[in-house]
């Protein structure tokens, strides 16, 4: 895989505030990367650096082989950007707005109706002024403008805020399509559970510093977080109490017990629990979520300081 974005040792200072410190990473072609961090962790700063809207105080940014902040910004023709809480010129209609941005990107405006349909913005809404739009409709228009001209790199800041569940689903399907056509997508969001299913890789930021970078699976391995196993026994059976490999079962219901197990012991414990299938009425295995991983990396960072 070819890297579409290469960031080397960037820092950005606003006065005395270090918004970003010594961050390096690569985004490969056809990859969906989630940028995760609490408010003020430097996510938006990084996105702005990738767009060339601001210049790094240190280090270098290379997007599709070019410095985005230099020259006539030609590289931005192949970028798509959806800002957090996107805003438009209120007096224009959705269609006019899209046509305006298409012209700035030198794209034929005939692609606009198809894009509007793709993001689920009805044709009748497209001819109303943006002033009358709901939050979700503005967000959809924002997505449509980001997708103008089939960008090679998409930078999406909180893309699903204001979208209802059906549209969210449609949005993630859209991302899948784009990924398979080789688009690189950087996604920042607070809805970690949603990212879990779609992101190939996760970058965790804290106070402007990158504290983790890898696939969710590899982060789970590093974090060594336990898997939660909950077993409901068939009535009267007490086989769990006889088990030796993991004695710390806690009772959470009349016949339901729960325990936590490390990744290495997980399979052997499951084998033991299911040794006699007749004893088990229900079994749930809960892997650590991205939420848990995020909390873990933040805490271990704090502990190290």
């Amino acid at each position: 895989m070819k890297p579409a974005v290469i960031v080397t040792g960037i820092a950005k200072r606003y006065g005395k505030v270090n918004a970003v410190r010594d961050v390096s990473f690569q985004l490969n072609e056809g990859e969906i990367v989630a940028l995760v961090g609490h408010n003020g962790a430097g996510k938006t700063t990084i996105v702005k650096l990738l767009l060339g809207l601001i210049r790094p105080s240190e280090g270098s940014v290379e997007v599709l082989g070019e410095d985005p902040a230099s020259g006539d910004f030609a590289v931005r023709q192949r970028l798509g950007y959806l800002p957090e809480s996107v805003a438009f010129h209120m007096a224009l209609t959705g269609r006019e707005t899209l046509a305006f941005y298409a012209r700035l990107k030198r794209i034929d405006t005939s692609s606009a109706p198809e894009l509007l349909e793709r993001v689920g913005l009805a044709a009748e809404a497209a001819d109303r002024p943006v002033r009358t739009y709901s939050k979700g409709m503005r967000q959809r228009l924002g997505l449509a403008q980001a997708l103008l001209g089939q960008p090679r790199v998409l930078l999406l800041d909180e893309p699903t805020s204001g979208l209802d569940p059906a549209l969210r689903r449609r949005f993630y399907d859209l991302l899948d399509d784009l990924r398979s056509s080789g688009t690189t997508i950087l996604l920042s969001s607070h809805a970690l559970t949603e990212l879990e299913d779609c992101a190939d890789r996760v970058l965790i930021l804290n106070e402007g510093v990158k504290i983790a970078d890898g696939t969710i699976e590899s982060l789970r391995r590093i974090a060594q977080l336990p898997t939660k196993i909950s077993v409901t026994q068939t009535e009267g059976d007490t086989s769990l109490s006889r088990m030796t490999s993991c004695p710390a079962w806690t009772k959470t219901g009349s016949d339901t017990f729960e325990t936590e197990v490390t990744m290495e012991d997980k399979i052997s414990l499951l084998k033991e629990v299911t040794a006699n299938p007749a004893d088990v009425a229900a079994l749930h295995v809960t892997e650590p979520t991205l939420d848990d991983l995020y909390a873990h990396f933040l805490n271990s960072r704090r502990a190290a300081q």
Binding site: L53, D72, R76, Y81, A87, F88, Y101, L104
Partner: peptide, 14 residues
């Protein structure tokens, strides 16, 4: 202040 400038400047315009 409205945020429209941010989006416009993310396009290839100076």
């Amino acid at each position: 202040e409205r945020g429209t400038m941010l989006l416009m400047l993310s396009y290839p315009v100076s």
